[in-house]
Amino acid sequence: MMFRLEDGRQPVCKLDLSRPTVSRLLRFSRDQGLVRLEIADPAKDREAAASRLEAKYGLKKALLVYDASHDRRILNEKLGERAAGYLASIVRDHDRIGISWGRALEEVANHLRPSSCKDVSVVQLKGSVSVSDMNNYANDISRNFGAAFQTNTLALPLPVIFDSAVTKDIVMRDRFIADVFAAGKATNIAIFTCGTVRNDAMLFKLGYLDKSETARLQAHAVGDVISHFITADGSLADADIDAKTVSLPLGEVKEKEYSILVVGAAPKISAIRGTLLGGYANVLITDYESALSFLA
């Protein structure tokens, strides 16, 4: 056994003790109350943090995954797997599931297993047609959700943000579009993610907004919930842009039996907090490190 000074200089004391002797000394010290050995339980820590989140934000359920990789792809896989498992546990016969799109939702869809529930319907809660070559994963998500619940997903074949509110209003009067939108409102389960207002935000890269609109949002918003941009306290960030947006209204999201937010990683902390403060989610599936930020 060797001792060193705190500054790392040469040892000042050396004891010729065998491992069995050290073990006996530790056991004696523990029995005498001089030494206490504790083993941290990460799962227990996550459960405690989840309970605190539920109490702080009035959530039905908070589920936390642990990821030390700091790799967004790996984290999304873990979130998707956990969310798919939770969804399987709550879906019942005749349920109506509303879905959005994005990388986190793609992983949820990838991890779904065939369900034995009957008469389950799936519908898109917001427009999905992109004006760029960037993939928003909407088609893959719709296909996998439909396959898991033995149904054809009702798609909303529109841009998520139109050039003008007038154009959007005219299109929304179409009977077929109105029926799909009504089906979205009738869902009792909504599962979605939230985005940021960073330059690499998917809604910015998909080409729906011009430079002045992007700058305006970056000045006032923290992110988006089902493509509705919100401020830090969960309020609507820009009424003019929202008037052009094809998505389930935020007020409707609050009324769902289950409104499930699946999202994680440090860049999205402000958006997640705004979503929770706005009351748009009653179930949160996120990572442990992000959860500690919300609780700090």
Score class of each variant (00 low, 15 high):
residue 105 L to T: 08
residue 239 A to H: 05
residue 184 G to K: 03
residue 206 L to I: 11
residue 34 L to T: 09
residue 171 V to I: 15
residue 260 I to W: 03
residue 173 R to H: 09
residue 82 R to M: 13
residue 199 N to V: 09
residue 125 L to Q: 05
residue 52 R to D: 11
residue 19 R to D: 04
residue 227 S to G: 07
residue 203 L to I: 15
residue 202 M to R: 08
residue 233 D to S: 08
residue 154 L to G: 13
residue 63 L to E: 06
residue 193 T to L: 07
residue 72 R to I: 12
residue 223 G to N: 00
residue 165 A to G: 02
residue 17 L to M: 13
residue 239 A to T: 10
residue 281 A to M: 00
residue 126 K to L: 13
residue 205 K to F: 07
residue 237 A to C: 08
residue 46 R to A: 14
residue 260 I to T: 06
residue 13 C to N: 11
residue 61 K to I: 04
residue 180 V to P: 04
residue 156 L to K: 04
residue 194 C to W: 02
residue 40 A to V: 14
residue 83 A to V: 08
residue 70 H to A: 11
residue 170 I to L: 12
residue 207 G to C: 11
residue 128 S to H: 14
residue 94 H to P: 01
residue 87 L to Y: 04
residue 255 E to P: 04
residue 60 K to I: 02
residue 18 S to D: 09
residue 40 A to F: 13
residue 197 V to Y: 09
residue 139 N to D: 15
residue 179 D to M: 12
residue 251 G to I: 10
residue 145 F to E: 01
residue 59 L to I: 06
residue 119 D to F: 09
residue 175 R to H: 14
residue 8 G to W: 05
residue 180 V to S: 04
residue 294 F to N: 03
residue 58 G to Q: 11
residue 9 R to K: 13
residue 51 S to D: 06
residue 183 A to S: 15
residue 269 I to A: 14
residue 229 F to E: 03
residue 229 F to D: 07
residue 276 L to F: 01
residue 22 V to I: 15
residue 87 L to C: 04
residue 19 R to P: 01
residue 208 Y to P: 02
residue 283 V to H: 00
residue 111 H to Y: 15
residue 83 A to G: 10
residue 219 A to E: 14
residue 21 T to Y: 11
residue 76 N to F: 06
residue 272 I to N: 04
residue 12 V to W: 14
residue 124 Q to M: 13
residue 27 R to V: 09
residue 69 S to H: 13
residue 71 D to Q: 13
residue 252 E to G: 08
residue 258 Y to P: 01
residue 241 I to K: 07
residue 101 W to A: 14
residue 81 E to Q: 08
residue 293 S to R: 14
residue 64 L to T: 09
residue 64 L to A: 11
residue 106 E to S: 07
residue 89 S to M: 02
residue 143 R to V: 15
residue 88 A to E: 06
residue 44 K to R: 15
residue 37 L to F: 14
residue 253 V to G: 05
residue 154 L to K: 12
residue 202 M to K: 09
residue 16 D to R: 14
residue 93 D to K: 09
residue 45 D to T: 09
residue 65 V to K: 07
residue 253 V to M: 15
residue 201 A to Y: 06
residue 139 N to F: 15
residue 169 D to P: 03
residue 52 R to M: 11
residue 282 N to P: 09
residue 140 D to Q: 13
residue 120 V to I: 02
residue 4 R to M: 11
residue 201 A to E: 11
residue 260 I to C: 04
residue 79 L to N: 05
residue 290 S to H: 03
residue 196 T to P: 04
residue 47 E to D: 13
residue 62 A to W: 10
residue 290 S to I: 05
residue 230 I to S: 01
residue 85 G to W: 00
residue 146 G to Q: 07
residue 20 P to Y: 03
residue 108 V to E: 01
residue 291 A to E: 12
residue 165 A to R: 00
residue 28 F to C: 10
residue 205 K to W: 05
residue 244 K to G: 01
